[in-house]
Design a protein around this nucleic acid. Structure first.
Lengths: 120, 120
DNA sequence: AATTATCGATTACATTCGTAATCAAAAGAG
DNA sequence: CTCTTTTGATTACGAATGTAATCGATAATT
């Protein structure tokens, strides 16, 4: 299943707060994005259609809940991205992030711990 | 500048072998993709239009050469991806790759070396 | 020289995406 | 009870994408 970038913004809100309605989503996004509530509703419709969200009627409105797990989706996308951009090799990706200052000292420490775990 | 996934396949060929023509690109891609030569030419045209490629006339045909450096493009895309999917944190991305067996033992070794360098 | 193959340029066309507007129904305001 | 607001559903519409076909010019073949 394909989730477009703008749709992902919606998913992110719902992964953080499952079970809210369109209006609440609009509120959460209002600070970052300048989206019309209609735009948000269009994307909610498409996400439901795609099977990424389920709805629960609450009175006259819907509450939305992700059907796709955030971790699963991230994993899939990460792999796809690494395949597309780096021929499937993850190390060059990290190298690029590092090179472009995409890694903070904390990130580096975190990665070291992670690698330590992986070796076991 | 925006390079679509299918276009990226073309760019990858040209990053490996700059200065070849449409027919040669088709040959290289023939093993993986099942693209009509016309499709390849369409994408070449779009890439030139976007400023991702330059052409050099050789007789009646063009030779194509990237104007964008692979490293630069990768860096930009890597950052964009991490921002979109992981809120800008690179460590979780690596964690996901690792978790999904996206990292080979070699990758892990490579990353360790990389992190060693970064700490200095 | 006539025919065919090939080249880049232009055009096509369905699908997805971003960004809404419109519409019918229902709920709330007065 | 009538008017306004709000909701989901349907429709809109241009840009980008994937996937070519057509066209006019030229090069290669016979």
């Amino acid at each position: 299943m394909q989730i477009a970038p703008a749709e992902l913004e919606i998913m992110n809100v719902l992964w953080d707060q499952p079970g809210i309605g369109a209006a609440e989503i609009a509120e959460v996004l209002a600070s970052d994005k300048n989206w019309n509530i209609r735009t948000i509703k269009t994307m909610l419709g498409r996400l439901v259609e795609k099977g990424a969200l389920e709805t629960e009627a609450e009175g006259r409105r819907y509450l939305y809940r992700p059907l796709v797990k955030r971790g699963d989706y991230r994993r899939k996308e990460a792999r796809q991205f690494v395949d597309r951009m780096f021929g499937g090799r993850a190390a060059p990706l990290v190298a690029h992030l590092a090179d472009g200052k995409g890694l903070s000292a904390d990130d580096i420490a975190e990665l070291e711990a992670l690698l330590g775990d992986l070796k076991k």
